[in-house]
Amino acid sequence: MTLDIITAPGLAPLSHGFFTRRGGASSGVFAGLNCGHGSSDQHEAVTINRSRAAHALGVSPEALIGVHQVHSARATTVTEPGMEPVKADALVTARPGLALSVLAADCQPVLFADHLAGVIGAAHAGWRGTLEGVLEATLDGMEALGADRGSTVAVIGPCISQGNYEVGPEFLDDFLADAPENARFFANGTGDRYLFDLPGFGLHRLRAAGIGEATWTRHCTYADPERFFSYRRSTHEREADYGRLISAIRL
């Protein structure tokens, strides 16, 4: 099956994509393009899937670089292919021929590019990482390589939308403690529950950091099981595990 890849005009002509679950070698609850070796999927199937993603970007599997994601605000600089994954949630590089990748299944995958400076970045931005500053850390890392955040484009890929992201009052408290104006990213849900706008919050943080352009592809991972894996949906359906979607950009 042909891969289904979502692209963004702001990142063109760089080779990039928010890969959906279609076109992979995995089966069962992982059916499709599960690219997460941290899942309980067969290692061989995940390796095949990652190779297909690398091929689509025009790089070898060794040049498709990722990190050991831990919901942090840490960004790491990539200088060569075959780098062993470090604990971080964002990557930046100025080396041509490398593809930076992150995995997500409801969290925000964010791809960055400063076309003029020749610097790219990728971030895995869940609620905790976004609140702690992973997007700003990515911009800082890119600037250390010569980028200008005012010339940088960031695109948030498929992630969970507000209508499907129900949270408790203690979750709201964390955001209000950070900044009272964060209340605008919450809507009333059922009972004492709230609905959190993760991509709206991500766009706010990017724009407040001075980025030149920030957009969201407006795809909800929870709402479309045919195209996307979703951690929250798999939990609600009591599945044993869930696939991870890969998003990547190549310089």
Rank of each mutant, 00 (worst) to 15 (best):
G150M: 05
S151A: 14
S151G: 04
T152D: 01
V153L: 04
V153W: 03
A154Q: 07
I156T: 05
I156A: 03
I156F: 00
G157E: 00
C159F: 01
I160L: 09
I160F: 01
I160C: 02
I160S: 02
S161V: 01
Q162E: 15
Q162W: 01
N164P: 01
N164I: 00
N164H: 07
Y165P: 02
E166Y: 06
G168T: 10
G168N: 09
G168S: 12
G168C: 02
G168R: 06
P169S: 08
P169F: 08
E170G: 01
E170S: 09
F171N: 08
D173H: 11
D174T: 12
D174Y: 13
F175N: 01
L176A: 05
D178H: 07
D178P: 00
D178Y: 10
D178R: 09
P180S: 12
P180D: 08
E181I: 04
E181R: 13
N182Q: 09
N182Y: 03
A183W: 01
A183D: 05
R184V: 15
F185Q: 02
F186M: 11
F186E: 01
A187S: 11
A187F: 00
N188E: 07
N188V: 04
G189L: 10
G189N: 08
G189F: 07
G189D: 12
T190M: 01
G191C: 11
G191R: 08
D192H: 14
R193P: 02
L195F: 14
L195W: 10
F196S: 06
F196W: 05
F196P: 05
L198D: 02
L198C: 07
P199C: 10
G200F: 08
G200M: 03
G200C: 12
F201S: 06
F201E: 07
G202P: 14
G202C: 09
H204W: 12
H204M: 13
L206C: 07
L206D: 07
L206S: 11
L206R: 03
R207K: 12
R207T: 11
A208F: 08
A209F: 09
A209C: 05
A209Y: 06
G210K: 09
G210F: 10
G210N: 10
I211G: 06
I211A: 11
G212T: 12
G212K: 06
G212F: 09
G212Y: 12
G212C: 11
E213L: 12
E213A: 15
E213M: 14
T215G: 05
T215E: 15
T217F: 03
R218V: 13
H219Y: 13
H219P: 03
H219E: 15
C220V: 10
C220A: 15
Y222S: 03
Y222Q: 06
P225F: 13
E226R: 14
E226Q: 15
E226W: 04
R227Q: 08
R227P: 00
S230E: 02
Y231A: 14
R232C: 02
R233Y: 05
R233D: 04
S234R: 06
T235M: 11
H236Y: 10
H236C: 14
H236Q: 15
R238D: 07
E239T: 07
Y242Q: 10
Y242T: 15
G243A: 06
G243V: 02
R244F: 10
